[in-house]
Nucleic acid binder design. Sequence first.
DNA 1: CGTAGTGTTGAGTCAAGTCAATGGTTGTGG
DNA 2: CCACAACCATTGACTTGACTCAACACTACG
Lengths: 246, 246
Amino acid sequence: MTANGHALVPLATRLTARANLTDDDRDALFALSYQDKRVDTGGYIAQEGDSPSLCRIILSGFAHRHRFTAQGMRQIIAIHGQGDVLNFPSSPPVPAEDFVQALTPVRVAIVAMEDMLDLGRRCPRIANALLVEMNTEISTIRAWVANMGRRDARGRIAHLLCELALRTDPAGGRDGCVAALYLTQSELADATGMTTVHVNRTLRALEEETYIQRQRRRIMIPNWSRLAALADFRSSPWTRRITTAE
Amino acid sequence: MTANGHALVPLATRLTARANLTDDDRDALFALSYQDKRVDTGGYIAQEGDSPSLCRIILSGFAHRHRFTAQGMRQIIAIHGQGDVLNFPSSPPVPAEDFVQALTPVRVAIVAMEDMLDLGRRCPRIANALLVEMNTEISTIRAWVANMGRRDARGRIAHLLCELALRTDPAGGRDGCVAALYLTQSELADATGMTTVHVNRTLRALEEETYIQRQRRRIMIPNWSRLAALADFRSSPWTRRITTAE
DNA sequence: CGTAGTGTTGAGTCAAGTCAATGGTTGTGG
DNA sequence: CCACAACCATTGACTTGACTCAACACTACG
């Protein structure tokens, strides 16, 4: 890969996983001018009503996307990690309706959306890879809807843990893999549509039934397929995984 | 608009609403070769595992998208109407993971995905319009997640009614508009993550509190902003509306 | 070592689910 | 044109999963 130490490598890696890019494509990508921003844990990476003419990409770290109801309740809609494009380019851009907040220290690349669109026009393979990535995102959110609507507490928590394990641990999906919970129990509650108290009890129940083992905010999954069955979790080749950068 | 009676007019209308197309763009669109398929109420328009190399577009009628859990429970994920693209093109395409079933008699256009991608390459404005449409879809599903996670029964039903009114009635969004429920109460339940019994009681409660008036499967909304407030419903310029074709 | 955020636990309540029966509509075929 | 069947809507009685309220314990960090 060209430009080994280039900051945008996580994006290049992600897009390459979606559709094969040539070295020329990667060179064009690396020629993008961007701003490299660091956000501390708890800081906001994007906000409702943000200027939609900028495209943000997570270079490292984890973040969660959420909205508020009129009554001030929070609903977490997605967990984002390395290589995720936070707002996909289009002209005109669709304005941001939600907040993205750092769960760990995060590095974000900020690119002018016009540059991004231009890149897509010049490199059809990159445009394609972005389309695949958008389709993947759509599929992931739909799975989230199904998760919220038709599963009980244990199933929802289990489903979220499976997703986190895949995105957090390169060994995710195998027995003994570990989901690093960058989320507090209160955030788990907002992600699954439950209350903090009930999340706590559900986690304990899952531990007592040996679905998981806990130590601090790390969840070990001794038997992946057993938990996946409880969660009714389906991973496809398109499921987003952590990009083991470089 | 060129080619007034062309079958693909609903798609052209939708894309034009997303980003301005030229007459040349529309001509290129109308030059697509497609198959025109009719599906009766209750018939399947698309299924899990369908050939992903075909792109389906609703020309008329309504349909719902759903998935099944391992226990056989159904979760409705979206309501689709005229002009909706059921699977967005990308190369490689992301395989279909859900079912789309007709709520009314439906006309579907089936286009080879390769042709669709090719069209996008030749007409950048069409590619752009599709990107906007995809971003809109993403935004809509995210709203659905927030709806499922953090609202009680009345709020969820109210939110769905608002969405249906906008998509079903050209006057949707104004006092006195009517949401045509092509959904049975059992389907409403699967869309909101509730049981049939509870949907029934919630509808009656909304009627008793004069939020709605019912006759058969038509819901009249006497006071839009009152219901929208209960539902915490936010419509943006990007909210999908029915395309009042020609 | 105090403070603030997070995690844990118990007791009581309520929204929503389950089970089960009864009406209402619609469509179809004799 | 009626009778039946199939599906859909409605209602009641009861159960339960999840929420609320409230207290207390743990941990991290200045």
